[in-house]
C-alpha cells in the first residue's frame, strides 16, 4: 500500500453522517457497474449543507458540476465522522470521488469498519483539532510510516494515531485480502 500520500485537503466539521456523505436517494445505483457506480463519486458529500461544505469559509463544492471526481483527495473531519447508517456506499462514494485518506478526531464504528474492511479509503485518527488548524485547499502530505501529517502550505506537522490491531487489514487492502493472507479463506 501507498505510504506517502499527497493531496489537497477538504475540511469538514463534527458529526458528518452518512446521509451527508451520500444521501439515501442515491443508494439505488449499482456499486459494481463501472459506468453506473461513477454516480457515487458524482454525489459524494452532496448532502453537506452549503455553509459547512469546505471549511473555514464553506460554500466550496467538493465536486464541480458534471464531474465524477474531486480535486480534493484528503478529507479532514472532526469527531464522530461517518455516524448514522451502515451504508458501505459512504466510504465507497469517497473512494470513487478520488479520496485516499480521511483524518478525523474519531469515527463511528460501522463507517470505520466499512472503510477498512472494504479497503476503500484509509481512516486515520488524530488527537489534534485539524478541522480548525487546516483550511480547505491546503496541500497536505501524509506519511504512514512516521504517522505524520504535514501542511505543506505552512510547514506545520501534526501527529496521527497508530491504527492498532486493524493495521494488518488496512495494509492488506481489505478484509478479504487479509483473510486470504492469513489462510482463513482460499484463493
Amino acid at each position: 500500500m501507498q505510504k506517502i500520500i499527497n493531496g489537497k485537503a477538504y475540511v469538514l466539521g463534527d458529526n458528518i453522517d452518512t446521509d451527508q456523505i451520500i444521501p439515501a436517494e442515491h443508494l439505488v445505483y449499482s456499486l459494481s457497474d463501472p459506468q453506473e457506480s461513477k454516480k457515487y463519486g458524482q454525489f459524494a458529500l452532496s448532502g453537506v449543507p452549503r455553509e459547512r461544505a469546505g471549511l473555514p469559509d464553506g460554500g466550496v463544492p467538493f465536486i464541480t458540476d458534471g464531474n465524477y471526481e474531486s480535486e480534493y483527495s484528503i478529507i479532514i473531519g472532526g469527531s464522530n465522522f461517518g455516524c448514522g447508517s451502515s451504508r458501505e456506499h459512504a466510504p465507497f462514494a469517497l473512494q470513487k470521488a478520488g479520496v485516499k485518506v480521511v483524518v478525523a478526531e474519531s469515527y463511528a464504528r460501522i463507517f470505520y469498519r466499512n472503510a477498512v474492511d472494504g479497503g476503500f479509503i484509509v481512516p486515520l485518527e488524530t488527537t489534534e483539532i485539524l478541522k480548525t488548524a487546516l483550511k480547505t485547499g491546503d496541500a497536505i502530505e501524509i506519511n504512514l510510516n512516521t504517522l505524520k501529517l504535514t501542511n505543506q502550505s505552512d510547514g506545520q506537522t501534526y501527529t496521527l494515531v497508530h491504527p492498532g490491531d486493524v493495521l494488518p487489514i488496512i495494509e492488506a487492502g481489505g478484509l478479504f485480502q487479509y483473510a486470504r493472507k492469513a489462510g482463513m479463506i482460499e484463493g
Binding site: 451502515s86 478479504f176 482463513m184
Partner: peptide
C-alpha cells in the same frame, strides 16, 4: 449489531465476523 456489505459478504461465505 450493524455492519456494511463487505463484512456481510464475509459472513455469507464463512459465518464469521471479527469484533472488538
Amino acid at each position: 449489531t450493524g455492519v456494511g456489505n463487505t463484512d456481510a459478504a464475509f459472513i455469507l461465505g464463512t459465518g464469521k465476523i471479527w469484533e472488538k
